[in-house]
């Protein structure tokens, strides 16, 4: 299964339909460790089953506010609870797209529940031995990263 394509298409569809904010894929990096030091917000959700892993959605502060404002239809001034909720929900939706694609390929995964974090100098670690892919998207408001860490059983 081509995870990059699944994540890219799922993310673009969710941003076009639900967030209503067009975003463009800038680059894809596949390596075991990466630092998202510009990210101020991360929504994440774990999944288990034939493949186990974690999906993270991170954004810069301005991007996070614009995305949340557009998704919820409200003005967002600060990185508040609405931003955390929105990023948890976006992570959940992207994981849903991954689950559907896995299902079509005969791979069973179950989703955990989303969590989100807001902070300074956020650094998200991978796991030794796990594969990690990061998709960097951009919009006029800033950058957004979708990352997938996974281990095939």
């Amino acid at each position: 299964m081509d995870y990059v394509t699944v994540l890219q298409e799922g993310t673009v569809e969710i941003f076009e339909t639900m967030v209503m904010l067009p975003i463009v894929l800038q680059r894809v990096t596949e390596h075991s460790d990466s630092t998202l030091t510009d990210a101020r917000v991360t929504g994440m959700i774990g999944f288990g089953g034939t493949i186990k892993g974690m999906i993270g959605v991170s954004a810069t502060a301005d991007m996070a506010k614009i995305v949340t404002g557009s998704l919820l239809g409200m003005e967002i001034a600060h990185l508040d609870d609405d931003v955390k909720d929105a990023f948890g929900e976006i992570a959940n939706m992207i994981a849903g797209a991954l689950k559907s694609a896995c299902g079509e390929n005969g791979i069973d995964i179950d989703l955990a529940i989303p969590n989100s974090v807001v902070g300074d100098c956020l650094h998200i670690s991978g796991l030794r031995g796990a594969k990690r892919v990061v998709l960097e998207f951009s919009a006029s408001a800033g950058k957004l990263w979708i990352e997938l860490k996974y281990l095939e059983a």
């Binding site: 994440m44 774990g46 186990k52 609870d81 300074d120 670690s125 281990l151």
Partner: peptide, 23 residues
């Protein structure tokens, strides 16, 4: 009947968490 995901870590300064659902 329960599956674990992969673990991940987050480190940083002045960060706080929120679960997105009623739990």
């Amino acid at each position: 009947d329960i599956e674990l995901s992969l673990p991940t870590t987050i480190s940083g300064t002045n960060y706080d968490f929120q679960t997105a659902k009623d739990v």
